[in-house]
Design a protein around this nucleic acid. Structure first.
Length: 221
DNA sequence: TGCCAGGCCGGGT
DNA sequence: ACCCGGCATGGC
């Protein structure tokens, strides 16, 4: 089976095993962006507490996030962990948004996709996964999101080289799939669902529904 | 109770 | 161009 068909087959296996994930469906784009920063190397349940604090303080607003004192912001997002780092990163992003797009997400997302991705990566605290999460989940742009689970799952199955870079993995998926926002959205969410259950740093491959379909993974990184 | 979570940066080789 | 320590809370 060629690479593209296999990537599509894996999507179908995951969709059948886990069902639609409908990530970030009812949230505003701004809330999605805040979540993308807060969830860096952090459990989503902790992020929800932090976002609830911001919402209660009426701070889920581009201008207010730009202007709020960083100490106050850090205290509110404390449950998300790395709160000093993430407070600085949130302010960096919303200061950049004010300076370059008048604080307006619609203007920002009107930029061409590849140019906007490069510009987001200039913001300190926005790396490739955060940029792609913003583009895909807040902006509905066809930019595939790669994360630690993506690397772990696909490298253990020897579908990508162990020394793949972020951009190489991203290209692996985008070159194998139709350019479809809903598909990219659902595929990444399904990869996370699989990873949480079966693809920890310490492998738990015996019951993995993917392994049953395409053969076992390799029990090491 | 240690391990893990939807990374990223900055300094050192 | 990599490699690694630091950043921090909460759930199981």
């Amino acid at each position: 089976m060629d690479k593209s068909r296999l990537v599509v087959k894996i999507y179908k296996v995951l969709l059948k095993a886990f069902g639609p994930q409908h990530w970030w469906p009812g949230d505003t784009p701004l809330e999605v962006i805040v979540g993308a920063i807060l969830t860096q190397n952090t459990n989503w349940t902790n992020v929800e507490k932090a976002i609830a604090n911001l919402k209660a303080a009426s701070l889920l607003d581009a201008k207010r996030l730009k202007d709020v004192r960083i100490e106050k912001l850090a205290e509110l997002i404390r449950p998300a962990g790395y709160f000093n780092v993430k407070a600085r990163r949130l302010k960096n992003l919303f200061e950049w948004l004010a300076a370059h797009h008048e604080g307006d997400l619609d203007r920002m997302f009107a930029r061409p996709l590849s140019a906007l991705r490069e510009e987001l990566l200039e913001v300190r605290g926005v790396g490739p996964e955060t940029a792609d999460s913003i583009l895909l989940y807040a902006g509905q742009k066809p930019s595939f999101v790669v994360d630690a689970y993506t690397y772990r799952i696909f490298s253990r199955h020897q579908l990508i080289p162990a020394d793949s870079t972020y951009d190489e993995i991203k290209e692996f998926f985008e070159s194998s799939l139709p350019e479809d926002v809903k598909l990219y959205n659902e595929y990444h969410a399904l990869i996370v669902a699989l990873g949480k259950k079966f693809c920890k740093p310490r492998p738990l491959c015996a019951e993995c529904p993917l392994g049953k379909e395409i053969g076992p993974g390799v029990l090491s990184d």
